[in-house]
Amino acid sequence: MGETGSKEKLIELMNRYKNLVFSVCLKLTGDYFAAEDIAQETFISAYQHLNDFDGASEKAWLCRIASNKCIDYLRSAERRAVPVSEEALLQNEESRDGPSRTFETRDVLEQVRDNCKALPDGYSEISQMYFIKGMTAKEIAQVTGIPLKTVQTKIYRAREMLKKTVRKEDLLA
């Protein structure tokens, strides 16, 4: 498959399955931003191995890549985790749901919403519109009357702040 053909195929795959792949990642990792990164990695990986794909089921293939990447992420996150007391470790072991443990999407989004609300003025509203309501930067610019470039910058900065907050919460959990 040619390079242009591959890109067209990738765009087609993203249009059809990006929400599903992102949702799978969100459900498995419970981290909005990790899910975003892994979903993007999934499509990059799919693009790089398009020629190897047997063409059976694109949806299953993409979700397989995504779920494997999520498991790898969880394993490495576990290795990175700060060692805690033995008691806490035992408690943690008992509370595990097993290999197919998934996160409630609603809870994850609720957590993101809370974090968005906690952001400084100017970022809180825009980040809620973008991350929770799913509005585009253009739509936010039209609604708020803020220039598009400023909205994009604020979204970028809010994303960085939220990533830090979520990761910190995960470490302290």
Binding site: M14, K18, L28, E36, A60, S100, Y130
Partner: peptide
């Protein structure tokens, strides 16, 4: 397990979350 997960997400509107707007642009 993967099939169940996919069906659970596709079958429930609350579980299906929209990917961020600049998702495609970032990948490309």
């Amino acid at each position: 397990e993967l099939k169940e997960l996919m069906e659970a997400i596709e079958g429930d509107e609350d579980e299906m979350v929209s990917a961020p707007e600049d998702f495609e642009a970032q990948v490309l």
